[in-house]
């Protein structure tokens, strides 16, 4: 036989999931939220999304170039980061500040640690926190829903900071209140979450346990669980940020512990710190604990017998 054969190591078949397909699914899952925020906050929202996505992709491209590594923008993970970052910002933020956020997320957090899969904290979240610390007033200037339709653009209160009774559950579900672009419309976020679970992109463990723990903790501290779940960044965080592959445990029990940690911390921060919003910090903290959690929750291999244990 003269033709050449491929010789390779088994297995010779691969499933058809790819990194790109997974990232595409995340983007699809984020679409309802993105659209909702454009409807609620107007054209500026779209511009901000565009700025962040373009910023992240370009920065990833050039960062890899400068570091003399292969281009990875094809895997679409930079698009996801850009989208998530945009959805975590208030709509009227200066685009330059948003670009600074991209720089932190992509260059500092992601690429300086070796690129996709290597960062130890979630890039979009880390960027959000850096911005929160650097530009507190810009990051916390909320405009009300439909402000662009002439409603006066005074700062609005987010549900967590507002007086009791300002917003109904329906307002929260539909996102008729101030807040970060992607946090407001709970229904859209949930829709995306369901899609991710159906497509098996994420396991439901983290969102369910996170939200469940948060609800329980709310009861413990005497808050309204449903109101807590539907307001602030909790849903977006539990479904899209805490489930980030790189920075959450790969083991099932690890996921449980991690999500419980997130839930407890979120409600504690919300109730007892002077920060209105505890989601970002909680997830970031648990990100850092992920390697440790993973180490402690390694599955027991089939047929493992403890030394000294009787047969």
């Amino acid at each position: 036989m003269d033709q050449k054969l491929y010789v390779s190591s088994s297995p010779h078949f691969r499933s058809n999931t790819t990194t790109r397909r997974i990232m595409l699914d995340v983007i699809i899952a984020l679409l309802p939220t993105t659209i909702a925020s454009c409807v609620i906050f107007g054209f500026r929202a779209l511009i901000l999304v565009g700025v962040c996505v373009a910023g992240c992709v370009l920065m990833e491209y050039f960062a890899r170039k400068i570091m003399k590594r292969d281009t990875t923008i094809g895997d679409l993970s930079a698009v996801v980061t850009g989208l998530l970052l945009a959805l975590n910002l208030p709509v009227d933020i200066n685009p330059l500040i948003a670009l600074f956020g991209c720089l932190v997320a992509i260059v500092v957090v992601k690429q300086m640690f070796g690129g996709i899969g290597m960062n130890f904290v979630n890039p979009a979240l880390a960027a959000r926190i850096v911005l929160l610390v650097s530009f507190p007033s810009a990051m916390m200037r909320w405009v009300p829903a439909f402000w662009y339709q002439g409603a006066d653009a005074v700062t609005a209160a987010t549900p967590l900071a507002a007086e009791k009774g300002t917003f109904s559950y329906i307002d929260l579900l539909l996102g008729l209140h101030g807040g970060s672009m992607g946090e407001v419309c709970a229904a859209a976020i949930l829709l995306g979450g369901v899609y991710l679970v159906i497509r098996k992109v994420i396991s439901p463990i983290i969102p369910c346990v996170y939200l469940g723990t948060a609800a329980l903790m709310s009861l413990v501290v005497g808050a309204d669980p449903l109101y807590q779940l539907l307001s602030g960044g909790l849903l977006l965080g539990a479904i899209f940020m805490a489930t980030d592959y790189t920075t959450s445990p790969v083991t099932n029990w690890g996921k449980v512990i991690y999500a419980v940690g997130c839930g407890v911390l979120t409600i504690l921060l919300r109730s007892f710190s002077n920060m209105p919003e505890g989601v970002s910090f909680s997830i970031l903290l648990m990100n850092i604990l992920t390697p440790l959690i993973e180490l402690l929750t390694r599955p027991r291999t089939l047929g493992f017998v403890k030394k000294g244990a009787k047969k």
């Binding site: 054969l5 491929y6 390779s8 010779h12 078949f13 691969r14 999931t17 990194t19 997974i22 990875t72 895997d75 993970s77 070796g114 690129g115 996709i116 899969g117 290597m118 396991s203 592959y245 790189t246 445990p249 790969v250 083991t251 099932n252 390694r298 599955p299 027991r300 291999t301 089939l302 047929g303």
Partner: peptide
């Protein structure tokens, strides 16, 4: 069917962990 796919960086998705019948990592 024979074409080999290029490996890229691990994204820590955990799919290999849940697929392993021996419960390894």
């Amino acid at each position: 069917e024979a074409r080999l796919s290029e490996p890229s960086a691990c994204i820590r998705c955990g799919k290999c962990v849940s697929a392993c019948p021996m419960s390894l990592m």
